[in-house]
């Protein structure tokens, strides 16, 4: 029924699924950039009191805001200042919220975050430098939509408070990213939705429990 070139074509097609399978392999987390100092404190992010906001220009006019309700992970600091910081943050893109149910569904689709295919966004810091104004310039690898890119965030320590046996610390991070670099291109060429996205992450972390 099939000629020899056809059999060769079938053999080629049979090899394709293995390429498809490699495409679905889970992404391994990036290695930690630097080892923590001996007096380091590891803080667990309180996901109830932490969130990420993003804003993007809509139709070249207004700024549209959305947010992610589930921010988790850990922060490592040393000293009271603190003197050094490192972040290992995960955001669940399925918790995206725009205030409109239909728009939330579209944001979760492969046109944007593709939450079923890429269920986690992560940020792992690789370098942190404290400026004279007390703000941190944190460089790290951000993984979103299956793509990992290095980004630079401005981070402020917003406060530190003892609460009974545990202690709380707050950080606010702000950065701007080009979503097309992460393969999220929907609406850019039509000028409907901006390419540049500003992200603000408010984090509260604790040394024990919530």
């Amino acid at each position: 029924m099939f000629c020899k070139p056809c059999i060769a074509a079938f053999a080629l097609l049979a090899a394709l699924p293995f390429v498809a399978a490699t495409n679905t392999a889970p992404q391994s987390p990036a290695p930690a950039a630097s080892s923590a100092p001996s007096n380091a404190t590891t803080w667990k992010i309180d996901d109830v009191h932490s969130m990420a906001m993003f804003r993007v220009q809509h139709f070249g006019a207004g700024m549209f805001w959305g947010r992610f309700d589930n921010v988790s992970g850990s922060i490592t600091t040393s000293g009271e200042g603190p003197d050094s910081v490192s972040f290992d943050i995960a955001i669940d893109p399925a918790t995206v919220s725009s205030g409109n149910e239909k728009l939330n569904g579209h944001l979760m689709s492969p046109d944007f975050f593709s939450v079923k295919e890429f269920p986690t966004m992560t940020f792992k810091s690789t370098k942190a430098e404290k400026g004279s104004d007390g703000m941190w310039t944190v460089t790290g690898d951000m993984t979103m939509h299956g793509v990992t890119k290095s980004i630079v965030a401005k981070v402020e320590c917003t406060g530190r408070q003892k609460m009974g046996p545990s202690e709380r610390i707050g950080f606010e991070a702000m950065f701007t990213l080009d979503r097309s670099e992460f393969g999220m291109t929907y609406g850019i060429d039509k000028g409907a939705i901006g390419k540049s996205v500003r992200v603000i992450v408010g984090m509260e972390a604790t040394t024990g429990g919530k």
């Binding site: 029924m1 097609l13 492969p110 295919e117 939509h145 299956g146 793509v147």
Partner: peptide
């Protein structure tokens, strides 16, 4: 969509490759 080389980053783009593969099977048969 940005196909992003091969294999494509976005899983749904494989529908294109699958359809082309089916077309080749049909053409070969």
């Amino acid at each position: 969509d940005s196909f992003g080389g091969f294999p494509p980053t976005n899983g749904w783009m494989w529908i294109v490759i699958a359809s082309c593969a089916v077309a080749l099977i049909g053409a070969a048969a």
